[in-house]
Design a binder for these strands. Structure first.
Lengths: 144, 144
DNA sequence: CTTTTGTATAATGAATTAATATATAATAGA
DNA sequence: TCTATTATATATTAATTCATTATACAAAAG
C-alpha cells in the first residue's frame, strides 16, 4: 500500500520544474542531480506527463522541458493519478468486472470511499503550494 | 499503491467472523468457502490478528476462532494497520531516518497528510458497520 | 557536422506478493 | 486410548510488480 517511486519521483520532478518556472527549458540532467534520481529513470517517468500535456519538450543543445501550465494549475492529485495506475486503492473500485462479488461486497464500497478521501487531499495541493512550502522549510533549515 | 490481498482478505475474514459473532468458534475452512479464499492463505493472515488479540482460537474438533471484541469495537483501520506495514503511504513518513532529504522535503509532509486522511476514514468504520452494510446490500440484491 | 539533448523500446535484476507444502500439536468424541 | 479434526509453525515456490539500466535513434544548436 505504498506509493511507488514513479509517483513520488514524478512529483519531485514536477516540483523541481515548478521551482524553475519561467527559466526556459530545464534539462533532465540538472533535475537528476538536484533530486538525486537517475536520468534514465526520469526519462521513463516523464513520458506520461508529456503525453498528458503537463510538459513540453525541446530537443537538442540548450533543450529541455517546460511546464505547459502554471504551478498553481497543476495538482499533485493529477500527477499521482497519472503515474500510479489510477487513484484507486483496489482494482474492483474502478472496474466492477474484475470481481464477481463486487455487487454484494461491502468492503469494496469502503475501499472506494477511502480512495476518494486520499485523492481529495492530493487534489487540494498544487505545485505552487509545494514550492511555497519548500521555501519556508529552507528558511527554517538555514536558521539552525 | 494498491492495498495488498493481506489486508483485503484479512478484512473479509474479520467481517465474516463478525457476521457469525456469538455463534461459537468459526472454522477457517468455513470462512474459506464463504469468502472463496484458500485456507492456507487465511492461516497466514490470521496470525497477526491473533497476536494482536483480536481473535482467540480453539484447537481440535469443533474448534475454530472467535472475535475477542465486539464488532462495534474493531475498526477496519486497526486491521489494515496490522496487515499492511503500517498505515503510511511512504516509508519516510513513519521513519525520518530512511531519507536524508526528509527535513527539507515538502512532498514528505504531503504524503503524511494524505496517509492520515486515508487512515482517518478507515478508523471511522467498524466491523459492525460493515455487517449492517452487507445486510442492506443483500436485501437490495434479492429484490432484483 | 559534431555535440548535446530528448525519444523509444527493450532487457534485467531485485523485491515483494501471493500462495502452497510439510510437519507438528492439541482436543473432542467414539 | 485411538482417531479424526482443527489449529500452529515454518519453509518453499511461483508469479508479479517495481525499479533501474542499456541500446539505438532523432532533432537541433553552433
Amino acid at each position: 500500500m505504498k506509493l511507488t517511486t514513479r509517483s513520488r519521483y514524478g512529483t519531485r520532478l514536477m516540483l523541481d520544474m515548478a521551482q524553475h518556472y519561467n527559466e526556459g527549458p530545464i534539462q533532465l540532467g540538472d533535475i537528476a542531480k538536484r533530486q538525486d534520481i537517475s536520468v534514465k529513470y526520469l526519462e521513463q517517468i516523464i513520458i506520461p506527463l508529456k503525453k498528458a500535456h503537463y510538459i513540453e519538450s525541446v530537443r537538442g543543445p540548450k533543450g529541455g522541458h517546460i511546464l505547459a501550465k502554471a504551478p498553481e494549475e497543476i495538482t499533485v492529485g493529477e500527477i499521482v493519478l497519472l503515474l500510479e495506475d489510477g487513484a484507486n486503492l483496489v482494482e474492483c473500485t474502478g472496474d466492477i468486472a474484475v470481481c464477481e462479488r463486487a455487487n454484494i461486497c461491502p468492503t469494496r464500497l469502503l475501499w472506494k470511499e477511502v480512495s476518494e478521501a486520499m485523492f481529495a487531499r492530493l487534489q487540494a495541493t498544487t505545485l505552487a503550494d509545494l514550492v511555497k512550502k519548500a521555501n519556508t522549510m529552507e528558511d527554517m533549515e538555514s536558521k539552525t
